[in-house]
């Protein structure tokens, strides 16, 4: 069994891995981000980053989570319908700054955590989507 197949087994999915753009992608179906983070911890994968995308028109946002496993970059995509997703900070300390940065720059909420100001905010000011024009 290849390392990628063993990950699929661990995640309980039969979907095939797709290598695209330098990343091994796995569709997760109904699995949520906290279950994914727990599984990645179990595999001793190294968290790399989260990339946030604002989709065209009213399609919302997409977050791509990346982990490294023995030099292979793994990618998992989560569409966001309501500008929020559960935080994995309590499961993976390394996400702290990137969750805070995305909150400040895209106005997305990572549920279940508090944010200290990081890049741009002062005090209790909430994050805003910097891509939207100021009305």
């Amino acid at each position: 069994m290849s390392p990628l197949e063993s990950i699929s087994e661990k995640l309980g999915t039969t979907e095939p891995w797709v290598e695209k753009g330098g990343v091994h992608w796995l569709p997760l179906g109904a699995m949520n981000v906290r279950e994914l983070a727990t599984a990645m911890n179990g595999l001793h994968a190294r968290f790399v980053t989260i990339t946030a995308y604002q989709l065209p028109k009213e399609e919302g946002f997409r977050l791509e989570y990346h982990w490294d496993l023995d030099g292979q970059l793994l990618g998992f995509s989560f569409p966001l319908a309501d500008k929020s997703i559960e935080s994995i900070y309590d499961l993976c300390e390394a996400v702290d700054w990137i969750e805070r940065e995305i909150h400040e720059g895209f106005g997305l909420d990572f549920l279940g955590r508090e944010y200290e100001p990081l890049l741009l905010r002062q005090g209790e000011t909430p994050g805003v989507n910097l891509r939207e024009e100021k009305k």
């Binding site: 695209k20 753009g21 330098g22 790399v48 970059l73």
Partner: peptide, 20 residues
């Protein structure tokens, strides 16, 4: 159309770019 990702070992460690 798509996204490509690249990683390089910079003097301070891994740099990653995702370009769409």
């Amino acid at each position: 159309t798509g996204t490509a990702t690249s990683r390089v070992e910079a003097p301070r460690g891994e740099v990653m770019y995702s370009v769409s």
